[in-house]
Design a protein around this nucleic acid. Structure first.
Lengths: 239, 239
DNA sequence: ATGCAAGTCATACAGTCGTTTCATACGCTC
DNA sequence: GAGCGTATGAAACGACTGTATGACTTGCAT
C-alpha cells in the first residue's frame, strides 16, 4: 500500500507537476469518500498514493485547498453534463414542458456515467458531496453553492413546468428529498455487501442491482413523489 | 460557552453521577450532530458542557463508548415509539393491509415528536444518524443494525402489504430512498437560514415550514414514490 | 470523628495532526 | 558546464488528540 507504484518512471519528463498531483487527487477523492475529510489524514493520502508527505502542501498549499481541488475537478464536468442533457431536452421540446422522467434522467444519469470528469468511479465524489453537505465549513458551503446554484435553479424550473400543480416551495423541498434519496441510495449501493450489517430491513435476495437499474428505480420513485398531490397549497396540517 | 452554567448547585445531592453525565450526553449529541464525531474533540464537549476534561473517560470509559451511549439513549425510545404506532395501526386494521400514508406516518412522526427520549431537539440525533450511516466504523454499524433491523423489517412488511405490486427488493430500495429523503431534508430544515448559502436551487419565498408541514410533504412525496409503477419486475433497462 | 466510595479537578502522557524546513536531484536555457 | 526553477526527499515543528494518573472534595454509614 505504501509501495510507490513500481511502474512509475524515475523522473518526470518536464518541469511541471506530472502524475504526483493526479495521484494525490485520485487517492484523496477515494479516501475522503470512504472515511470523510476529517477521518482522512494527509499521511493516509500520501502513503496510499505512494508520494512524499510534503507533496500535498507543495502542490495544493493546505489540506483544505486539496479538498476544494478534489471537488472542482469533478463538479465542473458533472454539472456541465447535466446542463447539456437538459439543453438537449429543451431544444427537442421546442418550448413545451418536458416530461418529468426526462428531467430527472438528465439530473441522475451523469452521476452514473463513470467517464465524466475522470476515470475514477464517480461514487467516491458523490459520497463526499453527501458528507460535505452536512459540514459547517463555510468555504465548503460557498464552493458547493457556486457549483450547484445554477444547476438546481434550472432543474427546479424544468420540474415546475412539468408539474405545474405544485408551488415553487414544494418543488424546492421535493428536489431536496430527491437529492437525499440519491445520496443515501448510492452510498448504500457502493457498500452493498455490507448492507446486511447495516441492517436496514430485509436483505434483498438478489444481487446488487446495476447502476442503471438503481437509477431507473430512483427515477420512478422520484417522479412518483414529485407528482404526488400538492399538500401545501391548502396548508392542511398533519393529522 | 465555557461558563459552567452558573445555576448548577455547588455539589450534587447524592453519591451517584448526577447531571454531569446527562450534560455530557446532551452536549455531545448536539456537537456530534453539528460537526461530526471526528470533528468534535472530548475537550470541545467538556468545555461546552462545563465539566472537567476527565469526566467523559470517568463516566463512559472512552470517546467511542460515549458515541454509543448518545445513540442508545435516543434510538431505543424512538424506535419503540415507531413500533408502538405501527402496532396501533395494525390492531385497528384487524388483519387488513394498512394505508400506505399511515405506515409512513408511523415511521416519520416519532422523529418530530421532540419529547421522545429526552428534551433535546431530535434533529441532532437525526443528523448524527445520517452522518454515521456513512462511517466505516464496524462497531457503529453493528449498533445501528441492532436498533434498526427489527424496525425496518416490520415497516418493509407493512409497506409490501400496502403496495403488493412491488417486489421485496423494490420495497427495500425505496425505503432506503425514503430514509435518505428524511435525513437530507431534516438536515436542510435544521439549517434553513443557511440554505441559500448552500444554494440548492431557488430560495423559497416563504418562511421555514413547520416540522409538521415538512413531514406532511415528506409523507406525500414518499407515498407517491413508493406507489410508482414497478420497474424491476420487467427488468427494463434505463433508456 | 472515622472510613469509604463516588465524583471532580489539574496535570501529564504518548501519539497523531497539518505544516514547515532544508537539502538534494532533476530538466531546462544560456 | 553553470545557473536556474521545479519537484522530491527526510526530518522536525508546535498544536492538538484521547486517555491515564494522583490529589482533593463531597455525602454518608459506621
Amino acid at each position: 500500500m505504501i509501495e510507490p507504484e513500481a511502474t512509475s518512471k524515475p523522473a518526470a519528463a518536464c518541469g511541471c507537476s506530472p502524475e504526483t498531483r493526479a495521484a494525490i487527487l485520485d487517492t484523496a477523492e477515494r479516501l475522503f469518500g470512504e472515511n470523510g475529510v476529517e477521518g482522512t489524514s494527509v499521511r493516509d493520502i500520501t502513503h496510499a498514493a505512494g508520494v512524499n508527505l510534503g507533496a500535498i502542501n507543495y502542490h495544493f498549499g493546505t489540506k483544505d485547498a486539496l479538498v476544494m481541488a478534489v471537488f472542482v475537478r469533478r463538479l465542473e464536468p458533472l454539472n456541465r453534463e447535466r446542463l447539456r442533457q437538459l439543453d438537449v431536452l429543451e431544444q427537442k421540446a421546442g418550448g413545451q414542458p418536458l416530461a418529468l422522467e426526462d428531467v430527472l434522467g438528465a439530473f441522475f444519469k451523469p452521476i452514473i456515467q463513470e467517464e465524466v470528469g475522470g476515470k475514477l468511479p464517480i461514487i467516491h465524489i458523490l459520497r463526499l458531496i453527501s458528507r460535505c453537505f452536512q459540514e459547517p465549513n463555510p468555504e465548503l458551503k460557498a464552493m458547493l453553492k457556486r457549483h450547484f446554484e445554477h444547476v438546481c435553479s434550472r432543474f427546479d424550473n424544468a420540474i415546475l413546468r412539468a408539474v405545474p400543480e405544485l408551488t415553487l416551495d414544494e418543488v424546492f423541498w421535493r428536489v431536496n428529498f430527491l437529492v437525499g434519496s440519491l445520496h443515501h441510495a448510492m452510498d448504500m449501493w457502493a457498500r452493498f455487501d455490507w448492507v446486511p450489517i447495516l441492517g436496514l430491513g430485509h436483505k434483498p435476495k438478489q444481487e446488487r442491482p446495476s447502476r442503471e437499474e438503481l437509477i431507473a428505480q430512483l427515477i420512478a420513485f422520484s417522479a412518483g413523489g414529485i407528482r404526488a398531490h400538492s399538500v401545501w397549497t391548502k396548508k392542511q396540517p398533519i393529522s
